[in-house]
Structure formats: C-alpha cells, structure tokens
Simulated scan of single mutants.
Amino acid sequence: MLIDSHCHLDFPNFAEDLDQVVARARAAGVGAMLTIGTTLAKSAQVIAVAERFPNIWASVGIHPHEAEAEPDVQARTLVELSRHPKVIAIGETGLDYFYEHAPRDAQKANFRAHIQAARETGLPIIIHTRDADDDTAAILRDEVAKGEFPGLIHCFTSGAALAEVAVELGLYISFSGIVTFKTAANLREIAARVPAGRLLVETDSPYLAPIPHRGKRNEPAFVADTAKVVAAARGIGTDELAALTTANFTRLFTKANVPAALAA
C-alpha cells in the first residue's frame, strides 16, 4: 500500500469527480491520502473533504503565497484548528522566493508561527521551500534550538545541502512527480541517498503529474508512478518502497489511525 502524503483534494479541479478520484487511488494501491490546507479561510472545506472519507486526513495552514493575504497568523489559531480529529498536521507553510507572491518578511513570520504550533501540538509541520534553501535552513536551525518539532519538506526540489540539514534536524523528505522528470537526475540522486526512515512520496495534485501523465491533471493514483521511479533510484522493488514509505507516514503522522482507516 502507498500513501499520498500531500494532495489538494478541496481544489476546484476535483469538484466534479472526487469520489471517482478516491476510488481510482484505491485501485492503484494508494490506501490513504493527506489533503493540505493552504489558507485558514478554507480550512473548513479542507477538513470537510477528510470527513467524507475514512482514509483521508487534513492539515491546516497558510501557504507562503498567502502570507500577505492572511497576515499576523497566531500559533494559537492553528493549534485550535488542529483539535479536529481529522487534522493531523500543520501547514503547508514555508518560504517561496521563486514567485514571491508575498513579502519575504511576511513569509518568515508565517513560517515561524506554524513551527510554534507544531511544537505546541506535536503535529508535523509541512514545509514548502523553493529558491530559499539558505533562509529555510537558517530558520529551521534557529527554531529547533528553541525546542524540537516533527515535520517534513514536501515536494523536495532543493539541493543536497538542504536535504542533509533536514535529516540532521530530524525532518522527513517527500518527493513528488518532479522526481520522474528527465531533467531531475539530481533529485533522483538525492532520493537514493535519503535515509530509509525519512522518505515519503506524494503527488501535490492537481499539479506536477509524473511521467507518463505529464500535461494531465494530477491525482493521488499517480503517486504509484512516482514511487516506481524512487524505488528504482534506490535499487529496491516498488513493494518494498510502498511498505517503507507507509511505515514512515504512520510514524510521522501519529494522529492518523492508518490501519483503522484502511479497514473501513
């Protein structure tokens, strides 16, 4: 069984056929999914998706693109939202200097508030970082010094140095369909070296469909294609990769009752 550790099932792209999307994921061997919050204003609709299905959970948070639209987020707000039984993570949050849809100072403040919430709740923080490796590493080191917290860097596209920092600080690393792209040999090398106990896979759907689905709407079923490439990079079988990443998901997202969800 595989788990899609990061998707956006509340997005309009899935409004017409969500039941079929979830069914196709099951048929492809994807037993569970984590649908991700990107704004506090839409937390209710993200959670509502998770409530519909026993094998789907949710996170709550503010994407760095939205850091200016929803400023001054307080950790206590995130903590309160996380009390819902289907909410198992904080985020996504982090830094994005590629698009810079929000000022860097606002992104950094947003990131730190989410880290505080993760520290207080014990729930993993889901980190988005793009073209911001140095600042991401600096904030993570600074915040870990204040007290440890669980988490992962999702849709990893950074360099080996940030991967090493993440592992050093106890974080997990998740790979999306980007790792299947012909131009992503460096990512496959990093995926091959990530410690077995820190590895996850995801779709980030509806975006970033892996080969052979490029150009299509991405969906959780396609995480199986990403898993095949990561398994090949590591020199293991896809069944072993599936068992490994599912065990890692269960260990990181301790609030999720994975066995019960799959039996339902």
Rank of each mutant, 00 (worst) to 15 (best):
A118L: 14
A89Q: 00
P103S: 10
I115L: 14
G151I: 09
G91V: 01
E143K: 08
F111N: 04
I126R: 02
K108F: 08
A118D: 14
P85K: 06
A137I: 02
P71N: 01
L152D: 00
G151R: 08
I90N: 06
G94I: 09
Q107K: 02
I90S: 07
P64M: 02
K86R: 14
T157S: 14
V79T: 13
F156R: 03
A117N: 04
I127K: 12
C155G: 11
D72G: 12
P71H: 05
R130D: 08
T93L: 07
L140R: 03
I126G: 03
D135E: 15
A102N: 12
I127G: 13
K146P: 10
E100M: 09
V87E: 01
G151Q: 03
L81G: 09
A117H: 01
T136F: 09
G151M: 06
I115C: 01
E66R: 15
A102D: 12
I90Q: 03
G122C: 08
R112H: 04
A118W: 12
F111Y: 03
A67P: 04
N110G: 06
L95Y: 05
S158V: 11
A118P: 15
I125W: 04
D131M: 00
I126A: 02
N110E: 07
P64A: 04
V73Y: 01
R83Q: 13
I88R: 04
D134R: 15
H128P: 11
A75H: 00
A102K: 11
P85F: 06
R83N: 12
I88W: 01
D72K: 07
E120A: 15
I125S: 06
I90M: 05
P71E: 03
F156W: 04
F111W: 05
K146M: 13
G159I: 05
A132C: 10
R104V: 13
N110Q: 08
G94V: 10
A109W: 09
H114C: 09
H84T: 02
A89H: 02
E68Y: 12
V144R: 12
Q74W: 03
R119H: 09
R76P: 11
E70Q: 10
K108T: 12
K108M: 14
I125R: 06
K108R: 15
A69L: 14
F149R: 01
I153H: 04
T93E: 01
F98C: 15
F111Q: 06
A160F: 00
A75P: 01
Q116T: 14
E70V: 08
G91P: 00
T93Q: 05
G94Y: 07
I126S: 05
L95F: 05
A67E: 02
G151V: 05
E100N: 09
E148R: 14
L78S: 01
E70M: 00
D131E: 11
P124V: 11
H84G: 06
I90G: 04
E66V: 15
N110R: 06
Y97F: 15
D72L: 06
G122S: 07
S82T: 11
A109K: 15
V73P: 00
Q116Y: 05
R130M: 08
L140Q: 04
K86F: 05
R141A: 09
E80S: 14
K108W: 02
A145T: 00
V144H: 10
G159S: 11
H65L: 13
P103N: 11
Y97S: 08
G91M: 01
R130A: 08
L123G: 04
D72C: 00
G94W: 02
A69D: 13
I153E: 01
L81I: 08
A118R: 13
I115T: 02
A132F: 08
T93F: 02
